[in-house]
Measured scan of single mutants.
Amino acid sequence: SISSRVKSKRIQLGLNQAELAQKVGTTQQSIEQLENGKTKRPRFLPELASALGVSVDWLLN
Rank of each mutant, 00 (worst) to 15 (best):
Glu35Thr: 02
Leu20Val: 04
Leu34Gln: 01
Glu32Asn: 10
Leu45Gln: 01
Asp57Asn: 11
Val6Arg: 04
Ser55Thr: 15
Leu20Phe: 04
Ser8Phe: 15
Asp57Phe: 11
Asp57Arg: 11
Leu13Pro: 00
Val54Gln: 03
Gly37Val: 03
Phe44Trp: 14
Thr39Lys: 09
Ser30Val: 13
Leu45Thr: 04
Ser3Arg: 07
Leu52Gly: 00
Ile31Gly: 00
Val24Met: 06
Gln12Met: 10
Arg41Leu: 15
Lys7Asn: 06
Leu20Lys: 01
Ile31Ser: 01
Leu13His: 05
Ser4Ile: 12
Asp57Trp: 15
Val24Asp: 00
Phe44Ser: 03
Ser30Asp: 15
Asn16Ser: 15
Gly14Asp: 05
Glu47His: 08
Arg41Ala: 11
Asp57His: 11
Asn16His: 07
Arg41Lys: 11
Pro42Met: 08
Leu13Gly: 03
Val6Tyr: 02
Val6Ser: 05
Glu19Met: 08
Arg41Cys: 13
Leu45Asn: 00
Leu48Met: 05
Pro46Met: 12
Arg10His: 00
Arg5Ala: 09
Pro42Phe: 14
Gln22Ser: 11
Ala18Glu: 12
Asn61Phe: 11
Ala49Arg: 00
Arg43Met: 13
Leu20Tyr: 01
Arg41His: 13
Ser1Pro: 10
Arg10Asn: 01
Ala21His: 01
Leu59Val: 04
Ala51Leu: 09
Ala49Gln: 01
Ser1Thr: 14
Leu34Ser: 01
Ser1Arg: 09
Asn16Arg: 06
Leu15Arg: 02
Asn16Trp: 03
Arg43Ile: 13
Ala51Val: 13
Glu19Ser: 07
Gly25Glu: 04
Ala21Leu: 00
Gly25Leu: 04
Lys9Ile: 11
Leu13Phe: 05
Gly25Pro: 08
Val56Glu: 10
Leu13Ser: 05
Ala51Gln: 05
Gln28Tyr: 09
Val24Asn: 03
Ile2Phe: 13
Ser1Asp: 14
Val24Tyr: 01
Lys7Met: 09
Pro42Gly: 04
Gly25Lys: 06
Gly14His: 07
Lys38Phe: 14
Leu20Ile: 04
Val6Ala: 09
Glu32Gln: 12
Val54Thr: 08
Ser8Glu: 14
Arg41Glu: 11
Arg41Trp: 15
Gln22Glu: 13
Ser3Glu: 07
Leu60Tyr: 09
Leu34Tyr: 04
Glu47Ser: 10
Leu59Phe: 06
Arg5Trp: 07
Ser4Phe: 12
Trp58Gln: 03
Ser4His: 14
Val54Cys: 06
Gln33Asp: 15
Leu52Glu: 01
Lys23Ile: 14
Glu47Ala: 14
Asn16Pro: 04
Thr26Ser: 06
Gly53Trp: 04
Ser50Glu: 14
Thr27Asp: 11
Ser3Ile: 05
Ser55Pro: 09
Leu15Val: 05
Ser4Asn: 13
Lys7Tyr: 10
Glu35Asn: 03
Leu52Ala: 00
Leu34Ala: 03
Phe44Asp: 04
Ala18Ile: 10
Leu59Lys: 00
Asn61Asp: 12
Leu45His: 01
Gln17Tyr: 08
Lys40Ile: 12
Ser50Tyr: 13
Gln17Ala: 10
Gln33Met: 14
Ser50Pro: 02
Lys40Ser: 12
Glu32Ala: 13
Arg5Leu: 06
Ala51Trp: 04
Val54Met: 06
